[in-house]
Nucleic acid binder design. Sequence first.
DNA 1: CACCTAACTCGTACAGTGTTCGAGTGTCGC
DNA 2: GCGACACTCGAACACTGTACGAGTTAGGTG
Lengths: 243, 243
Amino acid sequence: MPDFADSVWTRPPRTRGDQPALTREQIVRTAIEMLDAEGAAGLSMRRLGTRLGSGATSLYWHVAHKDELMELAVDEVFSEIYVPDPADTGWRMGASVLANGMRAALMRHPWVIGQLGLRPTIGPNAMRMGNRMVALFSAAGFTGLEVSHAAAVLQAHAVGSATTESAVAASLQRSGVDPRDMARQLEPFLERVAGEYPDYDKWRRETDEVNQDPYAMFQAGFAFGLERILDGLELWLNRPAAE
Amino acid sequence: MPDFADSVWTRPPRTRGDQPALTREQIVRTAIEMLDAEGAAGLSMRRLGTRLGSGATSLYWHVAHKDELMELAVDEVFSEIYVPDPADTGWRMGASVLANGMRAALMRHPWVIGQLGLRPTIGPNAMRMGNRMVALFSAAGFTGLEVSHAAAVLQAHAVGSATTESAVAASLQRSGVDPRDMARQLEPFLERVAGEYPDYDKWRRETDEVNQDPYAMFQAGFAFGLERILDGLELWLNRPAAE
DNA sequence: CACCTAACTCGTACAGTGTTCGAGTGTCGC
DNA sequence: GCGACACTCGAACACTGTACGAGTTAGGTG
């Protein structure tokens, strides 16, 4: 029996008729709060329990394991991502809004990134998003598997970009360095190893001045890549029929 | 002091003149073997120690914490990624080889994906790769920040695609389902929720027959996206000077 | 030769983790 | 009143990363 069919999403949450003190929604909600505040390493069932004013093991009535709780939390984050209706904006604008929204959600909840590679995301909110993505890219003119390929390339851009950016963000936050000082702090290290990476060093010296705010740079890089991807998709849609 | 400057990469490995039983290289190598075989959750310092025929705490002489060991392991994987010389192949082919190689390395060592969001990868092999990427995209005609933006969009495509694919691969492996049976196993679940995701369901029925082998589908999706991205980058390089 | 110092190894211990189990409590329908 | 169900939770188990300090070796110096 594959874990697709027998997962959180099939089993209905156990609840009583009245309102019990602990609900699955409340557990997931506060878990997300803790994850946002302290990262994946900061969430333990015991700490979550005490924060909810209950014993740690009480949570296991509402959730099978911690993994399942993480799965629920990830899907909850997916509900924050808005996929425009193609009739409203046209596909290109819609895809752009989707990609930007996905990146923003991942940066608000960076712990999600580490979860994405562990299991497929087939929760209701992820499915809802998939459904709307199909509508968006079908309306754009993609057919068959190209629909999912087009959706996948945008999703990959958002996830991949957020991965790199959140790595830097986490490091900056841990070290308490002001982002605008990062380049300065990094300089001695780069200076020391410059000889071994000549092409990189040359490029670094040329772009040094404009390269000060890392977050602005990531934002610009994401936008640049997104436009190139959308250009490439558009080119494909308008390709000569001969092919 | 940011953790950029004071990290594994600055501190030289402590060794004696002769060949001690335990070396940093050996530790990292067997750690990677265990990670490949059992995933990130399967590696513990104690198990790694016994596998090396030594006490668990002996490892802490060669490595500061487990986090540092993971950092070393990730950088070791980066050494497997080949970045072509632009003089050999031209930039488009070079970029394609790079992206495919990166995806392949991540799929060989899926545990790396979960590490990428935690800290920036500034190990020697990652730096070496960055250096060669700068050379590649500079030769292509990109200038200034566009060099890193172009490199970033390809890296994001590889990382993002590998994330989705490794999620499915992990789930398949855990459940022991034959990949070619996945669609069949998933069917009842999708059938049940079909009503809630009409666009998705319609698309699924239309593409059903061709959609059998998930790995082939991911490969095709990756290749499709990569070509669109390269098209988009090429379009940008050839843009009219007016802009 | 003795002796010292540095390079390592490792057993013990501590605080914390996810999770199981079984005993408890309350509330609802009959 | 009573049985069944819906929950809560304390104790316990096996496991984790890692600090500490004592132990072992080997090389160099007197």
